[in-house]
Write a protein that binds this DNA or RNA. Sequence first.
DNA 1: CGACACATGTAACACGTTACATGATTTG
DNA 2: CAAATCATGTAACGTGTTACATGTGTCG
Lengths: 178, 178
Amino acid sequence: MAVREGLLSLLEDGPRHGYQLKTVFEQATGGVWPLNVGQVYTTLDRLERDGLVSVGGAPPGSALAPGQKIYAITIAGKDELGSWWEAVPADEPPPRDELMLKVLMAIEHDRAHALRVVTRQRTVLLQLLQAKRRERSAVTDVDGSLAARLVTEALVVRAEADLRWLDTVEANLSAKGK
Amino acid sequence: MAVREGLLSLLEDGPRHGYQLKTVFEQATGGVWPLNVGQVYTTLDRLERDGLVSVGGAPPGSALAPGQKIYAITIAGKDELGSWWEAVPADEPPPRDELMLKVLMAIEHDRAHALRVVTRQRTVLLQLLQAKRRERSAVTDVDGSLAARLVTEALVVRAEADLRWLDTVEANLSAKGK
DNA sequence: CGACACATGTAACACGTTACATGATTTG
DNA sequence: CAAATCATGTAACGTGTTACATGTGTCG
């Protein structure tokens, strides 16, 4: 439920056709989230099926229209969007995060193994973080869209959080482990 | 690709049957990640299809066996697991995160709207964070498994990161926005 | 003309998830 | 005995994702 709501929210600005949505979506996400056009159409089909968007043929006052369709958001769609803006990702059950799962499974397997996994993850994550930091400082406010900068920033902050968590895990393993 | 590798890694400790895996999985994740039994079987089917586990009939020296099957990890399975332990979640393209997407879409829509969304998200996230913190301090080292504690800790750290990011977003919106 | 962007769509598959059906075994 | 737990499985559906087929319009 991400692409779905994403497209829906783009349609709130006005009717669009499929290809346009792909373009706008990629712009809005700073070019870091490529979106396969095919997925746009399948998602739009599902949105139509659910009554959240309506499809129109050729645009009213337009001369150019090969087989073009125009999608517009419906009342029901706007309602659903409204809920989406309000909603906060539920944390019960907690999101299945790959790093978390990996560490937990490693612990279940054997503490020594877990320590190796944690160390390894931390090393690579740290490298990634430093790369992202360089990327961040390289992109001055001028070039690079606001979106691109925010995404980079988010990744940096997330990576920092993961590193901090890995430290906690290691502390727990070392303390209780002996 | 989370349940899949999770089950595989549980099988590294020795052959198990489906129901057992459900139980162990839930224990290993501190009881916070419920796993529908049905999914265990479908996932095991897929693992078998891919040659990562092999299925045996009744356990060799066991008298009890109604229709029980025993699943064991194969060489190929161990190889894949090895890669999994080493692997670090790719960040290109960056993971499609709901919060990120929501904020980016809000920005594309209209900056004032984006500010409202950010504020709203921060408020609720902060409440969640505080609840988690209380939960964390309530669970002393005695009760609550290591796994459960680590999950709570992870959620706290993640929430803090998200809040920090939301602050950055707001700063950017306020600055450039006028 | 040829390449490229625009534009639409289908088919196939992946994983995750839930609901449901079925039966054996254990335990109060 | 009745209820809970153990145990296996199927059917159906949801989203995400890729690969492929098809055609138009534009620009060098």
